[in-house]
Amino acid sequence: MKVLVAVKRVVDYNVKVRPTADGSGVDLNNVKMSINPFCEIAVEEAVRLKEKDPATEIVAVSIGPQQAQEQIRTSLALGADRGILIKSDTDLEPLAIAKCLKAICDQESPDLILMGKQSIDGDNNQTGQMLGALTGYPQGTFASELIVEGGKAKVTREVDGGLQTVGLSLPAIVTTDLRLNEPRYASLPNIMKAKKKPLDTTSPEELGIDTTPRVTTLKVEPPPERAAGIKVADVDDLLYKLKNEAKVIS
């Protein structure tokens, strides 16, 4: 089985970002960058599939600047076999990313494509579903369990009302939710080994993808500030204030 994993380079989840002074963009100067946590879960899931079926090959793909190589190397250290960087110095929209991934699917013919449900920078939650439309493959989004068996994938999905299980024929796209697995840490020897694994570079132009943006960001701003609150002394004080000051309970 061949598994394609899409990994994105994003601002680390611990960083609280701010707009630039002129409000034209997000200030990413000297900010720590990491692999998107949901993509890390996707890599881990691929590695677990390979542990069950050693014939599996895992290809990690990222679209981003040259530095996105770091996130591909992280994926290789976690157990992916080779990497593909689609180099782009501008941030691409989910539709353009999905088109790039479609081109890689055409080249690689994977049986399974594992992706995150959401990038924690743009909070789009779109790319996997879009790739589904472009390839015609079925999708199991927000997965908390994945079983691949007999040419099919059984995916348990975290939905608003609880859990839903769907059956997908392969090739299929699965996007990860938080409960799918707990990613391992890369060991030092594996980090060393990852440096020698193959990593090819291409570009949207080479793949023939039109990446012209459809959506323009006119402005970014911080969210409205909340007025500073107070500490209450005890339960009686709290109840008094909720009744008489905030008037949210009677």
Partner: peptide, 15 residues
């Protein structure tokens, strides 16, 4: 909202 709601973006679609 983007970046966990730490940024509010105003965006315009040309589609």
């Amino acid at each position: 909202p983007i970046y966990a709601g730490n940024i509010i973006a105003t965006v315009q679609s040309s589609d």
